[in-house]
Computed example of a mutant assay.
Amino acid sequence: MHNRNEDSNLMDLIDSIENMEQDAPRISVDDVVYAVGRRSFGPLLLVAGLITLTPIIGDIPGMPTLMAALVLLVSVQLLAGSEAFWLPKWLLNRSISRQKFDKGIHYMKKPARWVDGLLKVRLPWLTGYIGIRVTAVVCLLIALAMPPMEFIPFSANGAGLALSLLGLGLVARDGVALLLGFALFGATCTFIAINLF
């Protein structure tokens, strides 16, 4: 297994998770968490967002809710001051076929290169101690909102994109990406409210 905690952009992260357990017929949540590191809040958010956002993987019934559980547990533990994140076995043992996982990773590669070209260190104070905890609160709200999103078309994709932006902002120390993630979550909540009421 391969464990890199120094990933600094989207392609680094994709390479980390693409190279893990290459001979395994299935990929579990535990494999992905091991690849990005149990202390890595930004990469874990980014992975959860990408999985929710990628049609090949994110369209699997229950997958957005599964990623919501991961984000919820990690966010709560970060706010509680944990240095390494604990996740229950029922979550870590969930898996998908390696073939489907690889298709999803391949789908992400082209836009990932483009996204990496846009990232830079901007407003780094937003990615400091307070900024990370504000981000964790927003992620907590996103996680709580995600299960009903499975029943509202396109809303889970908005949540996945918001999580991806927040994860990217923390990984690349790009405060602009964080602000975009906050704004997108607000827009997604507005969209859900309009559709429900």
Score class of each variant (00 low, 15 high):
I60M: 06
S28R: 07
R94K: 13
V171F: 05
K120G: 12
L196Y: 12
D12E: 11
S28V: 03
P55T: 05
A112E: 09
G117Q: 10
L87H: 09
I105A: 03
G128L: 08
G62E: 00
V71E: 02
G81C: 14
I17R: 00
A143T: 09
V47H: 05
G128H: 13
L166T: 00
S164P: 02
N195D: 03
G128C: 06
M149E: 05
A172E: 03
L180M: 15
V115L: 14
A145R: 08
L165I: 01
A35D: 04
G175L: 10
A172C: 12
R4K: 08
A80M: 14
D59K: 02
N9V: 11
D30K: 05
D102K: 07
L44N: 08
G58P: 02
I27A: 04
K109M: 15
A145T: 13
A172D: 06
V76D: 14
E6A: 13
P147K: 06
S40T: 11
N19T: 13
K103N: 15
F191T: 07
E18G: 04
M20L: 15
F151G: 11
R113K: 13
S95T: 00
T190F: 15
L118D: 05
L13T: 12
V134A: 06
E6W: 12
I132Q: 11
